[in-house]
Design a protein around this nucleic acid. Structure first.
Length: 205
DNA sequence: CGACCGATCGTCT
DNA sequence: GACGATCGGTCGA
């Protein structure tokens, strides 16, 4: 590590506006150091899940289950769950205790540890599929459901910023992916992407 | 390019 | 017992 990194602290996550935080997470760096292996990437796609009032959220209606309980916990905690029995999806818990906001990290642009990401994913070489989509992000960074509840203020899993800054004009806002079940809330503009970035999920060819 | 499909299993009803 | 906040592949036009 040579570039100065500043780890985001508790106050970054402990705020009310989950969509604002989701947008601010674009350009930040997601880092894991599990088993002494450092892998990181710049966040290029996020989705906000606004808790009790959001039909797309697992915590809609303040639904508390063993799985969703971490969202009701401290801001700056990882919420990781298994999707389709295969994919481990990584979320950042925000807002105060008892307010179950979360932000899904959907894509990153690889920075450090690309060789290790290739090993974890079984891929032969780097291309945009390495960390495109939430399932792939977790595979590349070694994030599993056992990491749910882990603090993002820890040394193993955290988000940092460097000198990089995005301009407002580089950000595109859209509806969220795969939440048709959420009725009218499925059309909320809660997905944020870095315009034109190769690693953003969706069609390509 | 779009439509569809199989994989795979924890979670909640 | 049904169903995903997905992914990568196939098939047909």
């Amino acid at each position: 590590m040579n570039i100065p990194l500043h780890r985001l602290g508790h106050s970054f996550y402990d705020r009310k506006d989950v969509t604002k935080i989701a947008k601010e997470l674009l350009g930040k760096i997601l880092v894991t150091t599990f088993n002494e292996v450092l892998t990181s990437g710049r966040i290029v796609e996020t989705e906000a899940y606004a808790g009790a009032g959001d039909k797309a959220s697992h915590a809609y209606g303040n639904r508390r289950t063993p799985r969703t309980e971490v969202m009701f916990g401290k801001p700056g905690t990882a919420y990781v769950y298994l999707c389709y029995g295969i994919h481990h999806l990584f979320n950042v818990v925000t807002n105060k205790k008892e307010i179950p906001h979360a932000i899904l990290i959907r894509a990153i642009e690889p920075m450090e540890g690309i060789e290790d990401m290739l090993i974890r994913t079984g891929k032969l070489k780097q291309d945009y599929t390495l960390t495109k989509g939430p399932g792939n992000v977790s595979r590349a960074l070694g994030i599993f459901t056992r990491h749910t509840g882990l603090s993002l203020l820890s040394d193993e899993l955290f988000i940092a910023e460097d000198a990089f800054r995005l301009k407002e004009s580089q950000i595109t806002t859209t509806t969220r992916i795969g939440v048709d079940y959420a009725a009218e809330d499925s059309i909320l503009p809660y997905r944020y992407i870095v315009s034109g970035n190769l690693y953003v999920s969706g069609k390509r060819k």
